[in-house]
Every structure is written in C-alpha cells, then in structure tokens.
C-alpha cells in the first residue's frame, strides 16, 4: 500500500493505493473524484517529474534549467548529478539545450534563463 497526496486540484485528497499480489489489480481509496483515481494509478505505476535545477556555468555561476519533459522520478538525483558534473560556456540563452537526451530519458536539459 502506498500513501499519496493528489495534486490534481487544491483539495489535495489523501489517497491510498494498493495492488493485489495475486492478480495485480490496483485499487485507489480516499479520492473525492475520478481525476484523483487516474492520477493515483499513473503515479503508482510510473511517477514522472519535470526537474528544475541550477546548471553550473564557467566562472562559478549558474543558470536555471529544466528537463524538456517529465522524466522518471527515480532518475531525479542521477540527472542532478549529471547536471552538476558539467559546466556550460557563456553566453547561455533561454531554450539552449545544455544536455541532449539526458540519461536516455528522451528529455533534454534546457536553459530557462539567460547569461551573457
């Protein structure tokens, strides 16, 4: 059983998701509406997040960056590690691809601010 908070609306229902070992059937409890159930199932099977972080730039600076799409939640810290191991060269512009297809996720790490 996994506890989670629904993020679909400000109500933030506290939900419990469980899976039957025998048949793999997933059941959701605690949700007030259908949206919560859909979210809970996705979150239970394959949680994904957009990662926003600071990307090092030469001279001890950093620009903000994000993954161009949501990536597996389990990969967040590996992606952060990858970002922190690199150093971008100035100038950096919004939308510049800083890491292509990061860790084979299919998402790029792109700059979200400018540095001249």
């Amino acid at each position: 059983m996994k506890k989670m908070i629904c993020v679909m609306c400000p109500a933030g229902c506290d939900m419990e998701v469980s899976q039957k070992v025998s048949c793999g059937e997933i059941s959701v409890a605690g949700n007030d509406c259908k949206k919560g159930e859909v979210y809970a199932r996705i979150e239970f099977i394959n949680p994904q997040r957009v990662v926003t972080a600071l990307f090092p730039v030469e001279g001890g600076k950093a620009v903000s960056c994000k993954t161009s799409a949501a990536v597996d939640k389990d990969l967040i810290f590996e992606i952060i590690k990858e970002i922190k191991s690199r150093e971008a060269v100035k100038p950096v512009k919004i939308g510049d691809v800083l890491i292509e297809n990061v860790l084979n996720t299919g998402a790029d790490v792109v700059a979200t601010s400018n540095m001249i």
Binding site: M4, C6, G12
Partner: peptide, 10 residues
C-alpha cells in the same frame, strides 16, 4: 498540498 507532495514527500 500539491507542494507538500512534490517538495517534501518526494
């Protein structure tokens, strides 16, 4: 609560 989920619980 969505921020509690996304910033703390995660």
């Amino acid at each position: 609560k969505s921020n509690i989920a996304r910033c703390l619980d995660d």
